[in-house]
Simulated scan of single mutants.
Amino acid sequence: MIKLDEKINEIENDYLLLLQNIKSNITDDSLESVLDSIRLFWYKNRKVVSMFLETLKNKQAFSYSGATHLDVNDNEYYGFLAVGKIHIMDDQLYKYADCLLQDVDVPGNEIIKKQVFTTLNDNICLLKDLKGIVLLLPVRLFFTNKLDVIHKVAEQCYLSFFNNHFSSIKNYFDNCKTAEDVDKYLSDDIKKSIYICDHDRFDLEFTERIKFLPDAFLGNNNDAEKFFHSLIGFIISGLEILETMHDYGIIPIIRNPATLSYIYLLEPNLSTDIFFLNKTVLANEIFAIVNQNMNNFKVYTPKEMNDLCKTNNIFETLYNDFELSTQSINQINFKERVEMIKTRILNMADNK
């Protein structure tokens, strides 16, 4: 009987062949059939993927999520390898297929189409250059049966940002039209803590930040509608990531600071497990600090970097040093924590 790990390896080999064939033949006109073939591929292999993910609980598994792709050519994976023992890239092509094959013309579809080509190329690089180091799997493949619930929860989260002043989203739309309306009702704490878009302008007044929202994804709506659509996207993405990761005991690594801010905001309200939040915060801080000090690791090949990280196991060491099994990571001074992480990372880099 073929072992589960071997079956996953076979699936990845087949996926690489599929993507290489797609790359050779893809055109704008064939995009729909291409995406359908990707969706069908993962649907066909869903049982094996699900069984494999179920085995990862309590195994220090981490998933690179909430990003379009993992930039292999720029060594962006170095920070990812620095945490944990098992590394999974959450394949976004499946998500793009779901979005674009719904036969709904929504703002942002053209941007998503461009991302398909970028992600396709990076997936091929990942499957070739990081074979046996980073797995490429659609971690959120099995989330579709929860989408209705997630959307309802997301709307309630959104309304809570306004101190539940509005009884429903319709009530919000009826009463909020302008940036000034949003500013009037939105909680002051939320204004200080959230991103309202990927490239938020924190140097601007809050109403100006709303007016700065791009039209590309949000369409020609009024400011209050744009604000809703921007935030609800972040909330849904955060809820999807957290629910899926909780299901499999996988810790999310989030490159996008906007998405990460919503993970931190939502997590305490979804779970009383401070240890999951501790692990998420620590892992993402390690990821960020390694990438900030990338030059110290460029002498390492991907395999050498992977072996180095597994040998040193900075994540587990720091988790124990910070005593995160008994206290919240937020009880530890942020600057001191970052300095300690950086010291450990630079010491590891010098071990060659």
Rank of each mutant, 00 (worst) to 15 (best):
S193N: 11
T207F: 03
F234T: 08
Y248S: 00
I241E: 05
D188P: 00
L260C: 11
F202G: 03
N222S: 14
I263A: 13
F212E: 15
I169K: 03
L270N: 12
G249F: 02
Y172S: 04
I250C: 07
S168P: 08
I190Q: 06
A179D: 04
E243G: 01
N175M: 09
F275Y: 14
K191I: 01
L277Q: 02
Y248E: 00
L239P: 03
K184C: 08
I235K: 05
D215W: 02
D174M: 14
K192R: 08
A224I: 03
I190A: 09
I235V: 03
T207C: 07
N171Q: 05
C197I: 05
T259S: 14
A179L: 06
S237R: 08
D203F: 11
I235S: 00
L239Y: 04
D247C: 10
L266G: 02
E267M: 13
K226L: 08
D200Q: 00
I190W: 07
T207L: 08
D174V: 11
H199L: 12
T178I: 11
T272V: 10
L218A: 01
N171S: 09
V182C: 03
R209K: 09
E208K: 11
R201Q: 15
I196E: 02
I169G: 00
P252H: 00
F202V: 07
N222M: 13
K191T: 01
D183Q: 07
N256K: 12
K191M: 05
E205A: 10
I236R: 02
N222W: 12
L239T: 03
L265C: 12
P252F: 01
